[in-house]
Design a protein around this nucleic acid. Structure first.
Lengths: 194, 194, 194, 194
DNA sequence: AATGAATGAGACTTCATTCAT
DNA sequence: TATGAATGAAGTCTCATTCAT
């Protein structure tokens, strides 16, 4: 009780993050979360009104950490190229840390309005941050470019999440690759493609 | 027996596609699928061993259609630029047809090994097709480029699936935008970003 | 299935009548009802949407039987005195048969609107039947008299339900007592009470 | 300690009376009672060993008040007719004050032996008081007559509890009606009913 | 092949009660 | 005495799957 929200609150959130992340929402039982958190089943319901709310809280915490790190990192960059590279680095490293929590992103509960709102807000915020960078850098159509860049990174993250053999070196390589592709295109040989 | 698997087989698959797509795996009941297909609940189990297998079959049919259309379209292109543009067009139009079936892609059953294998195979096949185009065109690092291009398209498809106001014109615009970005990069003004 | 509603329907209703009656709504578990009916727990929910609906169905069947017997008996009477006596006889004998099902009348589920409506309708129907008899017989204020007569009978029924030693002879005595009291009053000695 | 049992004891009893009365035993939570009483949940258990005991205490207080008022009123009457009328007046007015606390009488906990005993004692005491009046007045079969009179009043009370439109005038009318019916019967026209 | 009544394991959630502070 | 966080037993209801017809 010395902590603002209490030890148990965080313990539940941590346990839920671990289990929802590795098993998905529907295959994780409240009783498992309670057990991992070292508390009784009923205690979960003191802190979270329902399983859905708990999932939403886990997601929100993760979204916020993602956005906070992003803002902090971008603030330390001095030009747009650095910024684009940081975005790639942040995006890919973030998921690199979350290997083994893939289900958190793919297996959310259906039809929970609160979670939907949360995800939309997260995406909007992420998009807005990238948009701002591009617009300030004078890139045309910053909205579509922002979406495309994020999309590119999201697909590259898949290997991280699913490829067991993915290394730190692969990570670095992908980071540079992504920002370069975005800036200069695929560098198709000139004679080709006409 | 002119139809290889009989009318009911297809009726079930169609009903499952409609309901899994609009409600997701976990919120769709076998009884609903049977009702929509106009048959009895037990009959579903004559054709499909389990709910998971049915979902897998629905996905597989969709994957195959996607890949078949892709191969056919690519064969009709005469150079790499046309091919890249066709890939974008095909990807985005495919999902344009599937507005309202978003859940099929996001709310799949957890932990079903067969489905996992199926999705991996699909992705691998898609990737291989794009890879082949890029390699033949002399693009360096064709593997990473293939992933990035697909990723870009996948994010752009999100608007199609979730944005109610998305039009045919937006679609055309996105198709051109994606292939151009991939070929030439974001066209950052020269003075900027250094 | 040869029966109109199926064997199981009646089996559930009978089991529920027995258990709700002897233990009350809140202390009777669906699993107990299923066991007594010789079926699986889930089967109860095929026939009744909820525990409350099942209780309501049990009550309704009992109400209907009560009213049907009443109407039939009244039709066979030739004058108002016979009718009043039949009402008493019917009321008390009905509960005499239901010794050991007291909880059905006292421990109904709270706040179930359907049940409330059902009980109101039952009371209204019962009242209407007695009212009609009194009105046709020329009794003044038939509405209040109907209520009072039913109330008298209801209190007399208490002994039946709760007094283990209550006999058939007590029953007959109470029947005559009630109708006589209603007709002639308590026969207070004249000199008294002034 | 000027109050024998302390303020909190009474506060809990009052809160429990209000909530049990309006919602019933099963739909009232200890936490709600504590909140209404302005104390912590655990405190309830310092004063009452269980929810059932609390309900019993609430009932007992109410029973005692009912009986005390009855005795006091009867003592002030000078003959049996006045007494009978007072019994009716007291019974009906008591419930008139308790409109909105109907659940206290209908939704008691099942199977609580202490409460059963309490209710039996209450009924016995009430019955005994009426019995004494009737016996002293020379009414034959005072026991059955007492039961019938109370039953009559109990049914008449129903309108008070459930009829929203019930007025003070209706109350007065019912009081006179009940005592007159009891004394003289329903005054069936002579020619009828033979 | 087709049916759909029946099954029963299993999950979420509630809430009376306890007890360390 | 007072607190309220924590407990955990217990019950309702769901629904994929089976199987006798």
């Amino acid at each position: 009780m010395s902590e603002v929200q209490g030890d148990k609150y965080k313990a539940i959130l941590d346990a839920a993050f671990a289990l929802f992340g590795s098993q998905g929402f529907y295959d994780t039982k409240i009783s498992e979360i309670a057990e991992l958190a070292g508390i009784a089943k009923g205690t979960v319901y003191i802190y979270f009104k329902s399983k859905e709310k708990l999932f939403a809280a886990v997601s929100e915490r993760d979204f916020n950490e993602f956005l906070t790190r992003l803002e902090d990192g971008l603030a330390a960059c001095s030009n747009i190229k650095e910024q684009l590279q940081f975005i790639a680095k942040h995006h890919l490293e973030y998921y690199y840390e979350r290997k083994g929590h893939t289900k958190l992103f793919f297996m959310a509960p259906n039809n929970d309005p609160e979670l939907m709102r949360l995800m939309e807000n997260f995406l909007r915020s992420y998009m807005a941050a990238v948009f701002r960078i591009l617009e300030q850098g004078g890139v045309p159509e910053p909205h579509l470019h922002a979406k495309s860049y994020i999309g590119m990174l999201d697909r590259l993250k898949m290997d991280i999440l699913f490829d067991q053999a993915f290394t730190k070196e692969d990570l670095t390589k992908n980071i540079h690759f992504a920002s370069r592709l975005f800036l200069y295109g695929c560098r198709l040989p000139e004679t080709q493609g006409d």
